[in-house]
Design a protein around this nucleic acid. Structure first.
Lengths: 159, 159
DNA sequence: AATAAACCCTATCGGTTTGATGGGAGTTTA
DNA sequence: TAAACTCCCATCAAACCGATAGGGTTTATT
């Protein structure tokens, strides 16, 4: 299932990787109460994510501490924390990097523009920091549980 | 002056092209009252933008109607409109494309996710539309005149 | 009319990221 | 031992990004 072959590429903040990751985590969040981990092929099927790509994504999410894995037969993935305590912003930061549209406007990964006249106090930086803050406000205020609930509600109405 | 050789690449919403474009437009906005157009090398120098790259950017901005050019000796670029009536969001859209972090959340360039279970009503789409709206609110609410004034003020203090 | 200064425009380049896959090694349970 | 998993390396094509080369065209001045 190659998606990039179907749609024209658009430079964007949310990569395919992060989108897949969010969908996968929604699936795992829904399974949060279960005792058994969910095998990767099950997650891939439910979240509509290519199996091998998901493998890389879940590996990444495990290293960032969002999920844990059990190997061998009857193995799979499960959440490590309550989905209500995981901010969407942290997931996206883990998979896609900083939220800010430009490094000099980032709080978590600040880097000055080397081609800027006065990198500490630049009009573009000011503006982009406002953008960053607005984005972070939305994404900090939404938890994985919120997202999963929203998706469950949408699915209940339509297909 | 190659910047990409100095800093690690970070996927970002505001490309170097848009950043350069905004800086160049600030320079032209400051010159907005003058009768003569500003030659490109002068813009390049004041905005710290590579000459040839700026050429491509100004061409783009001209095609989008933000600036006009006069050819031949004593030629150059000048604003077509009052900088106070140009939204920063429109400049960024012209140079970088849609503001939305993902095509399905865009108002100006909507495209459904082809790998989405129900593309019309998806939790991620909802959330990303909120992000888009928050971003647009900041960028729609700031004009080129605002940006240029902010930069002028910063320069008056430092540098 | 010659010349210089400026914009116009296409084509191209290297480097990097992105999305995606293959293949095998390791691990656990039955 | 076999089956069913995860782990992790290496690799790939396509796209994009930043930047530049090198002509062609237009205009003002002399």
């Amino acid at each position: 299932m190659t998606v990039s072959a179907w749609i024209a590429y658009t430079q964007c903040m949310l990569t395919q990787k992060a989108k897949y990751g969010l969908r996968a985590l929604c699936v795992l969040a829904a399974e949060s109460g279960a005792h058994q981990p969910l095998p990767i092929h099950e997650v891939a099927q439910r979240a509509h994510v290519p199996h091998k790509f998901l493998e890389a994504i879940l590996l990444d999410l495990r290293r960032h501490g969002f999920v844990e894995s059990r190997r061998g037969k009857a193995g799979g993935y499960s959440m490590t924390r309550d989905p209500g305590e995981i901010r969407v912003s942290d997931i996206i930061r883990a998979l896609d990097g900083p939220l800010a549209p430009i490094p000099c406007a980032s709080l978590t990964a600040y880097q000055p523009c080397l081609d800027c006249e006065n990198p500490k106090d630049c009009a573009i930086q000011h503006l982009m920091r406002q953008v960053r803050d607005a984005t972070a406000a939305v994404l900090d205020g939404t938890t994985l549980a919120d997202l999963a609930a929203s998706e469950a509600a949408a699915l209940a109405i339509h297909g």
